[in-house]
Design a protein around this nucleic acid. Structure first.
Length: 572
DNA sequence: GCCGTTTTCGGCCCGACTGTTTTCAGTCG
């Protein structure tokens, strides 16, 4: 059973938590956390890298020590060091860190003074009033612990970007109407357009800071105010999301925006540059001694270090600084570059709108072309099209193409890749199509090698065009199936096939890291909405976000091509 | 535990807010 990167990362995170509770060197703790982040976000499995005899110390934050530990976990599924630590410091203590207000020092005190090792014991101690007697604790912190234990993990997990938008866009509008508020922007991972956000960081320029904070805490969606100071406030919203507001002066706005956009690692890298030049960088600006020498715009800050503006989507400490320094930042794809949408459904299978309604919807978005991709019969619940149904649809598309101006409808199908790698419809009907979008909707649990072979065998079919939602993952709901993506991408390159970034915000598949891997290999990706309704066509922008996070330029995207260029690329 | 245009040793980000204090430690982002 191969060990997943996420499992290795979880072991390192656990070690970091327990070491921190023990009071270990904070930088050692940080090293484990950084390694966990690197491994969790790495596109290929550590096991594969080791099998290829690759040097793991090339990875950011991995030295000889941690490389050995990764090897041990891959080979044995476990790490002896962790078991040793857990003998001293019970694993349950790490769980207590998840309670807001409890950090390593307080958890350590609960353990050493009261012998608490689990959340249940913590609850008992708090209920019996023992906690308030401890040094550094009081009645309020005891109350807080009980309250946090009552919550059913409202903060646990991350929220889909599209869902977070529903909370934050009305808030931004609310601020725009408040007198004295000059500007409002959402920073954090939201601005970096990460597929999920933990909390929301809202930044406002106002000279009436106290008043702005006050209005924030009165906002109709706020159910609980966690903190309220002179420059910032934190509140829980009805959706369960935590929103942090910072109110700053105009002259500090760029520094604050930079600081709160992150990522943390990107900020640290820039801060190191500052330190190297004898400067200090904080959320108020860049300081030479006491004098602020930049801070009003982000551009000013980057310029101070001879760097161009780095788009937020790239600020993940994944080589963007080196690229910026060497003048090879990508010219990222934008929504305006998109000329068509190559996956969508109609009432002929499981869509809500008719073919004509979808065509009108696409035309209104200003695209030149679109592909209709209803399901094939194998996905029985969607009432997919059999050969006869598809033939009828093809005729209708031809009629519509004659009738409608300003849009070209391409004939296509989302055809199932069956367990043995064959496609769900016969070649003589696939031949009539302009392209196919091929996907896995069954047998998700095949072993990795089998699943990979299945998909590559499907690509051997000359009618195979685009591999749709290549990993099958649903954000927060379903993990990706086991495949060797690099091998699949290589196979696609060799056969003139394409992979998709599915723009549905609950899929976003390929993800950012995988999209970048494709780009690095020279593979062209399609960004498709997979819309099942006319409003669903608007999902394109989430796909663009993900593509930008994957460093894609317009040339890396299939559906930025003109129709005639597209047609020639579709010839295998 | 990592890392190196200042370093193979000695650095490793820093300010706001809360609660428990009586001048500050701990937590958070």
């Amino acid at each position: 059973m191969p060990v997943h990167n996420s499992e290795i990362a979880a072991i390192f995170s656990q070690i970091a938590d327990l070491l921190e509770i023990e009071g270990a060197n904070a930088f050692r703790v940080r090293a484990y956390r950084k390694a966990a982040r690197t491994i969790r976000g790495y596109p290929r499995s550590m096991g594969d890298l080791l099998e290829e005899d690759r040097d793991l110390t090339q990875l950011s934050g991995i030295g000889n020590d941690l490389a050995d530990k990764i090897r041990e976990i891959v080979e044995t599924g476990d790490l002896a060091q962790l078991e040793k630590i857990e003998q001293r410091t019970p694993a349950g203590l790490a769980k207590m860190l998840e309670i807001k207000g409890l950090g390593p020092r307080k958890v350590q005190r609960l353990h050493s003074d009261l012998g608490i090792t689990s959340l249940d014991q913590l609850r008992e101690a708090a209920e019996s009033g023992q906690v308030r007697e401890l040094d550094g604790f009081g009645a309020k912190s005891e109350q807080n612990i009980l309250k946090e234990l009552e919550r059913e993990n409202p903060h646990a997990g991350r929220t889909q970007l599209s869902v977070a938008e529903e909370t934050v866009l009305p808030l931004v509008n609310y601020f725009k109407d408040i007198e004295g508020v000059e500007q409002v922007e959402v920073a954090g991972s939201y601005r970096r357009r990460k597929e999920t956000v933990g909390d929301l960081d809202v930044l406002a320029i106002s000279e009436a800071r106290g008043d702005t904070i006050q209005r924030f805490t009165e906002y109709e969606d706020v159910v609980e105010v966690i903190s309220r100071g002179e420059t910032r406030s934190t509140a829980i919203f009805r959706s369960g999301l935590q929103v942090d507001l910072r109110v700053v002066h105009r002259e500090n706005y760029g520094a604050a925006l930079f600081y709160f956009t992150g990522s943390r690692d990107h900020n640290l890298a820039i801060r190191r540059l500052a330190l190297g030049q004898g400067l200090k960088l904080n959320e108020y600006g860049v300081f030479q001694d006491e004098e602020c020498i930049a801070g009003e715009t982000e551009r000013d800050i980057y310029a101070l270090f001879d760097l161009p503006f780095i788009p937020p989507e790239l600020r993940e400490a994944q080589g963007e600084l080196a690229a910026a320094r060497e003048g090879r930042l990508p010219d990222l794809v934008t929504l305006d570059d998109i000329r068509g949408d190559l996956q969508m459904h109609t009432t002929d299978s499981d869509g809500d709108a008719t073919l004509k309604e979808m065509a009108q919807g696409v035309r209104e978005r200003g695209y030149e072309y679109m592909a209709i991709t209803d399901h094939s019969p194998h996905v029985a619940v969607t009432q997919g099209l059999d050969a006869a149904g598809l033939n009828r649809q093809i005729d209708e598309i031809e009629r519509l193409n004659d009738e409608m101006e300003g849009i070209t409808i391409l004939k296509s199908i989302e055809v199932d890749i069956l367990e043995d790698g064959s496609l769900d419809l016969p070649d003589d009907i696939l031949e009539r199509l302009d392209l196919t979008v091929c996907s896995v909707h069954s047998h998700f649990d095949l072993p990795r090698e089998k699943q990979t072979e299945r998909i590559i065998r499907a690509m051997d079919n000359p009618h195979f065009t685009i591999l749709a939602h290549p990993t099958g993952r649903m954000i927060g709901k379903r993990p990706p199936y086991e495949i060797d993506l690099e091998q699949i991408m290589q196979a696609a390159l060799e056969r003139g096939c394409f992979l998709e970034i599915n723009a549905d915000p609950s899929r976003l598949d390929l993800n950012d890291v995988q999209a970048r891997m494709a780009r690095d290999m020279g593979l062209i990706l399609a960004i498709d909405t997979d819309a099942h309704s006319v409003p669903g066509l608007a999902y394109m922008r989430f796909g663009i976000d993900q593509a930008r996070r994957g460093w894609l330029e317009a040339g890396d995207v299939l559906n930025t091509r003109s129709l005639s260029d597209l047609r020639s690329l579709l010839q295998r």
